[in-house]
Amino acid sequence: MLTIHHLRISQSERIVWLCEELGVEYDLKLYNRDSETRLAPPELKALHPMEIAPVITDGDLVLGESGAIMDYIVGKYAPGTDLVPGADNPDFARHLYWYHFANATLMTNGMMSIAVNAVGAQMPPPLAKRITNAWAHIEKALGEAKYFGGANFTSADIMLGFSLTTARAFSDMSIEGMPNLQAYLQRIGARPAYQAAMAKAEPGFPPKLD
C-alpha cells in the first residue's frame, strides 16, 4: 500500500494533491513539527537519511524527494496520465521547464531567504534580484497560458503549488500587483482534488490563495 508521510505545513502536501488528482489510493500519515525546533519529529526522521519530508513508503520501498516521488507515482500508478504531457504535445517543453523550476529555482530562493533571515542578515543584492526575477517570470508566464504546463493543468502546477500558497503564509511575500497569479490561484483553489488534499493534509489550515 502506498503511504504518504506528510509533515504538516511542508512541501509534502504536493504528494497528497497529486494522488487526489490521479485518483490513486493511498494511506496518509500526518506528522506535527517539533514545537521547539519546528523541524520533523523523530518518527519521521527515522524513515529517511535526509530526515525531511516528503517521504513515501510502498511495500519495502522508502523514497524521498518531491520530483522522484511524483515521477514514481505517475510511472507506477498512472502511466499515460494527461498530467504529464508527452513529447509530441506542444506544451511538452514548457511543462518540463516549470516542473523543474519549482525546486531548482523557486524553492532554492525560498531556502536562501530563510537562511539569511535566520542569521539576521540582509539579502545580498544579486540574490534579491534572483528572487524578484523569479516572481516576475511567474506572473508573465501566467499571462501567456492558463497553467504553468500550458493550456492544461499538469504536474508542474502541483510541483509549484506549495511555494505559491502554503509557504507564503510564513513570509511577508505579497502577490499584490500580480493579477495573473491571483487569478491562477483562484483556479487552483476551485479544483476538487486540491480542496480534498488540503482538507486531509492540513486540517484547520485554510489554503493561502490570495
Rank of each mutant, 00 (worst) to 15 (best):
F92Y: 15
A93G: 11
A93N: 12
A93V: 13
R94C: 06
H95D: 07
H95W: 11
L96E: 05
L96V: 06
L96S: 04
Y97L: 08
Y97N: 06
Y97R: 13
Y97P: 02
Y97Q: 12
W98V: 03
Y99G: 00
Y99K: 14
Y99V: 07
H100N: 11
H100C: 13
H100L: 14
F101Q: 09
F101T: 04
A102H: 04
A102I: 03
N103R: 05
A104D: 14
A104L: 13
T105M: 06
T105I: 10
L106G: 03
L106Q: 09
L106C: 05
M107G: 08
M107V: 10
T108S: 12
T108N: 13
N109W: 05
N109T: 07
N109V: 11
G110L: 14
G110T: 11
M111W: 13
M111C: 09
M111Y: 12
M111I: 15
M111G: 10
M111A: 14
M111S: 12
M112L: 15
S113E: 14
S113M: 15
S113Y: 12
I114T: 11
I114G: 13
I114S: 14
I114W: 13
A115T: 13
V116G: 08
V116S: 12
N117D: 11
N117E: 15
A118Y: 10
A118K: 15
A118T: 12
V119Q: 14
G120L: 08
G120P: 08
G120V: 08
G120I: 07
G120F: 09
G120C: 10
A121R: 15
A121F: 07
Q122V: 11
Q122K: 15
Q122S: 14
M123S: 09
M123D: 11
P124K: 10
P124L: 09
P126F: 02
P126V: 03
A128Q: 13
K129R: 09
R130P: 02
R130L: 03
I131M: 06
I131V: 10
T132C: 00
N133A: 02
N133H: 06
W135G: 00
A136D: 08
A136H: 04
A136Y: 04
H137M: 04
H137V: 01
H137I: 00
H137F: 03
H137D: 03
I138C: 00
I138A: 00
E139I: 01
K140S: 06
K140W: 01
A141W: 02
A141P: 01
A141R: 03
L142I: 05
L142D: 01
G143P: 07
E144P: 08
E144M: 08
E144F: 05
A145M: 07
A145W: 02
K146Y: 02
K146W: 02
Y147E: 00
Y147H: 02
Y147D: 01
Y147L: 01
Y147K: 01
Y147C: 02
Y147N: 01
F148Q: 00
F148P: 00
G149W: 00
G150I: 00
A151Y: 08
A151N: 12
A151L: 09
